[in-house]
């Protein structure tokens, strides 16, 4: 499923979607950035509550399909602009990491 299809089917909002046709091939949940870089796979949807600017670099370098901010967390405009420029998709979810992962699990 692509990130665009996920936004259409799941209760997630697109904050920025510069690369909508990116295929999602798995899921990783985590907030410690070096864990994410060590354990996430390229193509994963990355669920986190971290929202500082470093998530953009991590998502880009670890080559995740999208970042999903759980718990209603919304990154600042400046961070969204950086993500947009770097081709990093960011989605927003109201639920926690568990609910978010369940919603993904039903669709993937």
């Amino acid at each position: 499923m692509t990130v665009r299809e996920l936004v259409e089917k799941a209760p997630f909002k697109a904050a920025v979607l510069p690369d909508p046709d990116r295929e999602i091939t798995g899921v990783y949940i985590g907030d410690l950035l070096s864990w994410v870089m060590g354990r996430a796979s390229g193509g994963d949807a990355w669920i986190t509550i971290m929202s500082n600017v470093n998530i953009v670099a991590v998502a880009s370098l670890a080559d995740t399909a999208c970042v999903i901010e759980a718990e209603g967390v919304t990154p600042d405009e400046e961070i969204l602009a950086t993500a947009s420029a770097k081709g990093v998709n960011i989605l927003l979810a109201e639920g926690g990491a568990y609910e978010t992962a369940i919603a993904l699990s039903k669709l993937l």
Binding site: L32, L33, S34, W35, M37, G38, M50, N52, N54, I55
Partner: peptide, 15 residues
């Protein structure tokens, strides 16, 4: 608080 400090950076570099 920024998400660093897990002590996983050097191990990742090696991996």
């Amino acid at each position: 608080t920024l998400g660093f400090g897990a002590g996983m950076g050097l191990p990742n570099m090696k991996r």
